[in-house]
């Protein structure tokens, strides 16, 4: 469970997040939606401790993220694009993350889930395509079987087949009662597995609740139409 309480973030005069209050339910897929520059990535980075909030608090499993970094052992993060040191081998990156997690978790999925990277292990990072780097990011996040997954537009750099595999894996994680927060621009892609929707616009929450309720509230049959109606 992630709870966000009166979260504010500003860069100088620019208010990026304005009084955000929400909670992300355990065992559900919560999809974070919003136009470009609406504050989605900032919100995700605040949860991960990469961005320090101006005020307010975030709790992950009842632990305040500002108090220590150990809460991150429960989180697997898939960034929008995978970036790694260019001259390391793929297996070096796995070993590095494995070492960084030592003592706080054990790899239970390994190097073949959700994507089979066993043939890439001895390749240098600079020789990998953008898609393979993104697959590596996903595998690193899933490697420790954490309780919470945070994915920032994870399918942006993936080909359609890989994107499908990733989505199937997300569904599998939901069945295993994992908490998933996923940001995406492609609404049709996330509609069939989203439980809850957080719609954010210019740093403010416009909608926060179950997808089914959103559809009833807007009297629309698809997520895309519902969001369009909210933006009117």
């Amino acid at each position: 469970m992630i709870t966000i309480d009166k979260l504010q973030k500003s860069y100088g005069k620019l208010q990026v997040l304005d009084n955000v209050n929400t909670s992300i339910r355990t065992g559900k897929v919560t999809v974070l939606i919003g136009p470009n520059g609406s504050g989605k990535s900032t919100l995700i980075k605040c949860i991960l401790g990469l961005v320090k909030p101006s005020s307010g608090d975030i709790k992950v499993n009842d632990v305040s993220v500002s108090s220590n970094y150990n809460y991150r052992k429960d989180i697997g993060y898939v960034p929008q694009y995978g970036h790694f040191p260019e001259n390391l081998l793929v297996k070096d990156v796995f070993n590095l993350v494995l070492n960084l997690r030592n003592g706080t978790g054990h790899p239970s999925y390994g190097i073949d889930k959700p994507f089979d990277l066993t043939t890439e292990l001895k390749k240098k990072i600079y020789s990998l395509s953008g898609g393979t780097r993104q697959k590596l990011s996903a595998n690193l996040a899933f490697m420790f079987n954490p309780q919470i997954y945070i994915c920032d537009e994870p399918t942006a750099g993936l080909d359609p087949i890989a994107a499908r595999t990733f989505k199937q894996y997300i569904q599998q994680m939901r069945e295993e009662d994992k908490t998933i927060l996923l940001s995406s621009h492609v609404l049709s892609e996330v509609e069939h597995f989203a439980d809850d929707i957080i719609f954010i616009c210019e740093g403010r929450l416009k909608y926060n609740g179950p997808l089914t309720e959103l559809k009833i509230q807007t009297n629309e049959s698809t997520l895309e139409d519902s969001i369009a109606k909210l933006m009117e």
Binding site: I75, H83, P85
Partner: peptide, 14 residues
């Protein structure tokens, strides 16, 4: 050049 990888490391419990 390492900034994105630094971000990834900072999402680990360290």
């Amino acid at each position: 050049n390492s900034r994105n990888f630094i971000e990834l490391m900072l999402t680990q419990p360290i």
